[in-house]
């Protein structure tokens, strides 16, 4: 109950913010931060709970974005339809990648997801309809009342998506699905022999995780009013979506949220104050620091601090 009240309050707060006369740049940056909250929360459902490291977040993100572009160019579909379609197509991609888990585990699964990214990027580079390698300019439709600018509206949409993603992750974690996924992470054989339908749960986790990433990606073309393969399939998404839960903590749904808020905010500040290239360095340094110093992330540090202060 308390959780759902907080969700409602946070959503109303995002709407209020979007209607307030603040600087538009805030929404431009906050959209990206929220997008990373969605990506890292989605990544954690498969990577954190089930222990299957997905290194292809960029592919799911981009397939969501390109689905939106196709629908927009072909039918002029509104944003909501684009995002649902992006989620559906990326969910389907997640299901197919999930079938890989039949044979591939650990590092081999991670490598296969990287391969999926490269294959799909090559396809998009060679697909003229969506702009090929040079990209495609998109003319945004008129903004919907009561929002002043399109960016403000996108900020609210992404806030809503982040809250949905977090709620899904929380539900999965607290239900028998989450227990089953954790059993899979520890020992797939023992899980199966304890009555856990491992294949079904893995397919479920891959599909849900992919769908949420796709929905996040589907908002990107309208945000940039442009699409282009190299930046859409960027390895940065894959690395960040993996680093954020690691930094926040993978054991609980709040972990990836904390990690994304910290890391994406730092990235936004660094982009403005120093340079865009330093971004990648920040992710790398923080990831190494946490893996060495706090392998259970911020959550682990917090638990340790609670225990020592008792």
């Amino acid at each position: 109950m308390k959780y759902w009240v907080s969700v409602a309050v946070l959503f109303l707060l995002s709407v209020a913010l979007a209607l307030a006369p603040t600087n538009d740049y805030f929404f431009y940056a906050a959209f990206v931060v929220l997008q990373f909250v969605v990506l890292s929360t989605a990544w954690n459902i498969l990577g954190g709970y089930a222990g299957y490291v997905n290194f292809g977040t960029g592919a799911f993100f981009a397939i969501g974005a390109y689905s939106a572009v196709v629908l927009f160019k072909w039918l002029g579909a509104p944003l909501a339809v684009q995002m649902v379609a992006g989620a559906a197509v990326s969910g389907l991609l997640g299901f197919s990648v999930g079938l890989l888990t039949l044979r591939l585990r650990g590092i081999f699964f991670a490598i296969a997801t990287v391969a999926v990214t490269f294959v799909l990027e090559t396809v998009m580079i060679n697909w003229r309809y969506v702009g090929g390698a040079t990209g495609l300019q998109l003319v945004r439709p008129a903004v919907i009342e009561p929002f002043d600018t399109y960016t403000r509206m996108l900020f609210v949409v992404m806030a809503l998506l982040a809250l949905i993603a977090i709620s899904v992750a929380r539900y999965v974690q607290d239900s028998w699905i989450g227990r089953g996924l954790r059993a899979i992470r520890d020992s797939e054989e023992a899980a199966e022999c304890s009555g856990v339908p491992t294949l079904k749960l893995k397919l479920f986790a891959c599909t849900i995780s992919g769908a949420l990433m796709g929905a996040a990606g589907a908002a990107m073309p309208m945000y940039l009013a442009f699409i282009e393969p190299a930046s859409t399939f960027s390895l940065n998404y894959s690395v960040s979506a993996l680093a954020m839960p690691m930094i926040g903590g993978t054991a609980h749904w709040i972990g990836p949220v904390i990690g994304a808020l910290i890391l994406a905010t730092i990235q936004q500040v660094v982009t403005v104050t120093i340079s865009n290239e330093i971004n990648v360095l920040v992710v790398g340094v923080l990831l190494v620091a946490f893996v060495v110093g706090a392998p259970d992330g911020v959550l682990g540090l917090f638990k340790r601090w609670l225990r020592s202060s008792k």
Partner: peptide, 20 residues
Amino acid sequence: AAYQRTRRGIARSFQVPRPF
């Protein structure tokens, strides 16, 4: 599948203990 057999009543322990 193994999980379906478990649900029908066949359980096993592993040679190397595999606690969760």
